[in-house]
Design a protein around this nucleic acid. Sequence first.
DNA 1: TTGTGTATATTCACTGGTTAGTATACATAG
DNA 2: CTATGTATACTAACCAGTGAATATACACAA
Lengths: 197, 197
Amino acid sequence: MARSAVPTRDRIISAANALFYNDGIRGVSVDAVAEKAGVTKRTLYYHFKSKDDLVAAYLANRDQPNLALFRQWFSDARGGLPAKVEAIFRNLARSARHPKWKGCGFLRTSAELANMPGHPAIRIGAAHKKKFEGWLCATFEAEGIAEPLRLARQILLLLDGSFAVVLLHRDPSYMETAGEAASSLTAAAMARRRSRH
Amino acid sequence: MARSAVPTRDRIISAANALFYNDGIRGVSVDAVAEKAGVTKRTLYYHFKSKDDLVAAYLANRDQPNLALFRQWFSDARGGLPAKVEAIFRNLARSARHPKWKGCGFLRTSAELANMPGHPAIRIGAAHKKKFEGWLCATFEAEGIAEPLRLARQILLLLDGSFAVVLLHRDPSYMETAGEAASSLTAAAMARRRSRH
DNA sequence: TTGTGTATATTCACTGGTTAGTATACATAG
DNA sequence: CTATGTATACTAACCAGTGAATATACACAA
């Protein structure tokens, strides 16, 4: 049945991931994905009912590992909350220096498919960002920060701004600048918490 | 000669603007642009040597009006520097509530063509953002703010983050949150200026 | 005024290639 | 012998770009 140890469906998703992330959705044909996965197009259409379905699977597959990475960057960092927040941006800058880096797959897909608001891939992207926002918010809340959601959203804005700006200018130092802003906003929010106790 | 008062070339750019902004670059065929402009495809190729050339013209055409709008929002606002900065975000949120709004054309194009780093359209987008950053920086410098470039970049990050996040979630309130962050970072930078004098 | 050449502007019709998706048949396992 | 999975071969539409011809405007000579 399977040509190798990894199931056909997973190989297709893996091929889709490499191609869609690199060249965008409309820049990659279903034939190209099938060829990269080592299957015929007909086999691909056995596992996915349409290209849109495949795109959704591509993003759904990025959700968990992506979030896990951010959480790990955060928890591995030394220092207080501002330093831990800043560490996310520093690690992101390091990723962005790899030549194959092409920004955030969720944001790039949502930008490309902006004229299809209800597209499954966009819903998956939105859910992904909400999960990250929710995790940040819960973390801040546990630290007793006032208006944790507001701070979480401001950091998310800086993060997604980093993706966009660094993709445009190809200058990862913007991520460090964003990290400083995030750190400073976090420190200010912590000061507001302390001042009330 | 001309079918109407406005030159053919301008009508083509105008059609390209409407279609590319709405549906993305690869989502729009040259035939579609020609049809919308009321010319044949061959005429379009008389005025533009390729689709890439047309895309570049589409963005080049957005550069000046876009910057002028931001400057006007800033200068029309009442209050101190933080309030003027925040006004940009408030006005942007108002724009984003229009149903035809689809984020930033420069960022969306750079996201879609991320696998073509030297593409003329991306260069035009990068230059556009640098112009905005430069204007912000000069404004802050004139106000005697310490490290004006740093603040300018942080605000740019919040702004471009707004575009990305609001496009994904279709929730313009993120822009007001970004405006608060920008205002707060600006106020902090002004305090640093004052504290040294 | 009239004819004529030339650059500009536009059209029709076409090409070679690509695309998403499918009809049909074949294989293999339980 | 039936459900799952894979392959060959196809369709109908679309797409970027082009060849060849035509129309228009205008400068200038007769």
